[in-house]
């Protein structure tokens, strides 16, 4: 839909080699990722950027849904804090989700994600807020005492300093003990992105 504008847009894909060098993507993967970016960015507001509405539509296939986590992910991706993602921001953020990204980067990103108030630690109240939001978003209903007992157990396990909060070091130890907590930080799709968006070869700037 917005192919022509983006091709001539100064925000378009320039120097995929540099981005490939600074991320976990190959040059071909960057070019294929750009095809995905173009598709998502022109969904709602066709300005060559991914706005929150574009992002939610791509994630949920509807823009009528509100999600605490979709907002949180978007805000973390939005490094320039201008409410819209350029391709570079998009590629750099998704790079953390690459199967070959260092696990330390995944730990860091997931900590930031759950540190809702960006205080450098995760409070019990924040964990409760996220559990309640997850249950509401998935249409599940759990009694408050069950939610409290899940959180109690989590803090028993994670809060080894017993100060009622989970700091970065405790988070790191927790996920190293329970690697499944990082499962959503790896997108296998990023391995196959060149297959998913083969049209990148028509716009490729590099010889293979």
């Amino acid at each position: 839909c917005c192919e022509i504008e983006l091709q001539n847009n100064p925000r378009g894909l320039r120097e995929p080699q540099i981005l490939a060098r600074e991320t976990n993507f190959s040059v071909s993967e960057i070019e294929a990722l750009y095809e995905l970016f173009k598709k998502i960015s022109c969904a709602v507001i066709d300005d060559g950027l991914i706005n929150k509405e574009d992002f939610q539509l791509a994630l949920f296939k509807t823009n009528k849904r509100k999600s605490l986590f979709a907002d949180r992910v978007f805000d973390l991706f939005d490094i320039n804090h201008n409410g819209a993602l350029g391709f570079e921001e998009f590629a750099r953020a998704l790079s953390v989700f690459h199967p070959s990204a260092p696990v330390e980067d995944k730990i860091e990103f997931s900590f930031k994600l759950y540190d809702l108030k960006q205080q450098g630690y995760i409070e019990r109240q924040e964990v409760k807020q996220m559990v309640v939001a997850t249950l509401a978003e998935s249409g599940m209903d759990l009694a408050d005492e069950i939610v409290e007992s899940i959180i109690d157990k989590t803090f028993e396990d994670a809060d080894t300093k017993h100060d009622g909060r989970i700091d970065k070091e405790e988070w790191r130890n927790l996920v190293l003990r329970h690697p499944s907590l990082l499962k959503n930080m790896t997108l296998q799709y990023l391995m196959d992105i060149t297959t998913a968006f083969p049209s990148f070869v028509f716009h490729s700037q590099v010889d293979d």
């Binding site: 995905l36 999600s67 998935s138 997108l187």
Partner: peptide, 25 residues
């Protein structure tokens, strides 16, 4: 048994954190 589940395990199942849907056509 949800009472034995880690809160973050539950949170990580949230659809808003499942970015793989970005790649669905």
């Amino acid at each position: 048994r949800p009472s034995l589940m880690n809160a973050f395990e539950l949170i990580s199942t949230s659809q808003g954190l499942n970015l793989s849907t970005l790649f669905e056509k």
